[in-house]
Write a protein that binds this DNA or RNA. Structure first.
Length: 580
DNA sequence: GTAGGGTTAG
């Protein structure tokens, strides 16, 4: 039996079925005004009046109208309206059922979509390929359903339907079941380009690039999407050499190829190369799109070089790019990380649309720049505009509280996070709270919080406590924190110096000697200084604490002396008690 | 209506 002929006859049977649509009696002339009414609905309220109009002229039996109506309901998340009107229909057809099934999947009620699928079968309405496209997505949420759905797909004659089988591969790979995905792939008598790409992408998702490559090499002719998929996978594996070589050898590159390469460098923290690829692409006359720009701006943010960020921004302004939420939040973050909070704020206030990311970027920016009150105000504004904060938001807000010593505010926000937003406190949140409490001298409250943690505290947590102990001279708890840190980060010299200075301050010279001895024993005497760099006239200049290797270091130290003098005149007294 | 690239934090 010729399988594809079988499929063709089944398809023919289905389109014949379409010709005999039940309930489609009204002429196009009559339905058009209501159809437009439905399509123009901008609020759920208007949707209800559209339904009323439909009932009034007794066109609620019209399947085409109902299909459009359900689609409109889906976009307003008002499937209750859709259900109540469609269940009253005498004979809903396959289009009506498909619209409702799809609606439930997109409104994240997959189980209800299954309910209407069952009802559809009971009603003897034959499913179409569209029905299964939606249902495959829904089955990701009901364990075991995928398997029985696959049986149905065969039963209703779509076992060899290329698109549905491809969707099925996508479904299995989405739930990490690569072997099942491959089984579907292997059993397909016909495959198109997308089928191959989907399977290669399935391997990429689990970073099995060996299988991805060998499958791609079996392709008669690799399409661009498959090349891009391989490049992306290798960059995520950290293998930029292979990614670069694939990028260089692919016959045709499109905008996705370039963007994937830029993103690949960024993923591997090679930000200047990411930006360099962007410049190379524009030099070769390729026009970037919004996706490219958001990755490039993100790379600029990590570079922290204001001049480059500004240049890329100006390019975007010149090319009249749309300020979408991706570009918007990347720009806000870039300007704030490059030190220009003013520009970040200007961008933020000029955004036509703001999502969670945009708000998070500006709140984080304000907090990082020490503007605690403004960060909190922005947080309130975000809530008043009905944007729901997530765990990232709370890290920034709590950080702001810590910087400004707002203990009560921080405590309230922390509890609101757990009680009002059902966000589980993670290491970072605990870190913020421990820092907040211990900096304010509430060492025992900080310690109690650490005791409440349902996972092992990390070095950041104990480090935060140790820092509080230093400020408030609590040697007893400092020793506890220090002992934990000795296990977690035994080679971090900072903790040793901190404890040594605390002992020295209380003239406990025996303890000082003991810690110093331990340091010598472990060979961690040297302080690893933090370095910083600055770009002047397209050259990067590196500096480290007490470093005199730079050619202009004489000048630099002269200037530093002058700055210290000025600061002293302004009444600044440096905190030197912990400089050992 | 099925394939490949995007933003904050980590």
């Amino acid at each position: 039996m010729n399988a594809s002929a079988n499929v063709r006859s089944l398809r023919a049977a289905h389109s014949h079925h379409h010709l005999l649509l039940r309930g489609c009696s009204t002429s196009l002339f009559q339905t058009l005004p209501i159809l437009q009414l439905i399509k123009q609905c901008s609020t759920p309220k208007l949707l209800e009046s559209a339904l009323a109009a439909m009932i009034k002229i007794s066109q609620n039996e019209d399947c085409h109208l109902m299909n459009q109506f359900i689609t409109a309901c889906t976009s307003f998340n008002r499937l209750d309206l859709a259900v109540s009107s469609m269940t009253q229909m005498q004979a809903p057809n396959v289009f009506v059922y498909n619209a409702l099934i799809k609606g439930f999947v997109t409104c994240s009620h997959p189980i209800r979509s299954l309910e209407f699928y069952v009802r559809m079968l009971r009603d003897s309405v034959s499913p179409s390929s569209y029905t299964y496209s939606s249902l495959v997505k829904a089955s990701a949420f009901a364990s075991g359903f995928g398997e029985s759905l696959q049986a149905h797909i065969w039963k209703f004659g779509f076992g060899l339907h290329v698109q549905i089988q491809t969707t099925l591969i996508g479904f299995y790979s989405g739930s990490g079941r690569i072997r099942e995905a491959r089984k579907v792939f292997d059993e397909m008598p016909e495959r198109d380009d997308i089928t191959w790409t989907t399977m290669v992408s399935a391997y990429r998702k689990v970073l099995d690039m060996e299988s991805a490559s060998s499958l791609a090499n079996l392709m008669p002719k690799k399409n661009v999407a498959t090349w891009n998929c391989l490049i992306d996978g290798f960059t995520k594996l950290g293998n930029l050499e292979i990614a670069e070589s694939l990028f260089n050898q692919m016959p045709v590159k499109d905008i996705v190829s370039w963007t994937t390469m830029i993103n690949g460098y960024s993923h591997n923290k090679r930000y200047s190369e990411a930006v360099a690829v962007f410049y190379r692409m524009t030099e070769e006359g390729i026009v970037p799109d919004e996706v490219t720009m958001s990755t490039v701006i993100s790379a600029c943010a990590h570079l922290g070089v204001l001049e480059i960020g500004k240049e890329v921004h100006m390019y975007m302004v010149q090319k009249r790019f749309v300020l979408d939420v991706y570009i918007g939040s990347a720009l806000v973050d870039m300007y704030s990380k490059c030190g220009s909070l003013e520009r970040a704020l200007v961008i933020f206030f000029n955004l036509p649309k703001k999502n969670l990311f945009c708000w998070n970027s500006i709140i984080e920016g304000l907090a990082a720049h020490g503007c605690a009150q403004e960060a909190l105000k922005m947080f309130d504004k975000m809530k008043s505009e009905s944007v729901k904060p997530n765990s990232v938001t709370f890290v920034s807000v709590l950080t702001a509280c810590t910087h400004a010593g707002l203990v009560e505010e921080g405590r309230m926000i922390y509890h609101s996070m757990i009680d009002d937003y059902s966000i589980v406190s993670n290491v970072e949140h605990y870190g913020c709270m421990v820092h907040l409490f211990s900096k304010a001298g509430l060492i025992y409250e900080a310690l109690g919080l650490i005791g409440d943690m349902e996972f092992e505290p990390n070095a950041v947590i104990w480090g935060a406590l140790l820092d509080g102990c230093r400020i408030h001279k609590n040697l007893e708890i400092a020793e506890i924190a220090f002992n934990k840190l000795m296990v977690l980060e035994p080679t971090n010299s900072g903790y040793y110096f901190l404890l040594v200075s605390m002992y020295a301050e209380e003239n406990r010279w025996r303890d000082v000697a003991e810690v110093r001895g331990k340091m010598k024993e472990l060979g961690i005497e040297k302080i690893c200084p933090g370095t910083s760099s600055i770009r002047i006239d397209k050259r990067d200049h590196m500096f480290a604490a007490a470093d005199k290797s730079h050619s202009a270091s004489d000048e630099v130290f002269l200037l530093l002396d002058e700055i210290y003098e000025q600061m002293g005149l302004a009444g600044y007294v440096p905190e030197t008690e912990n400089v050992y």
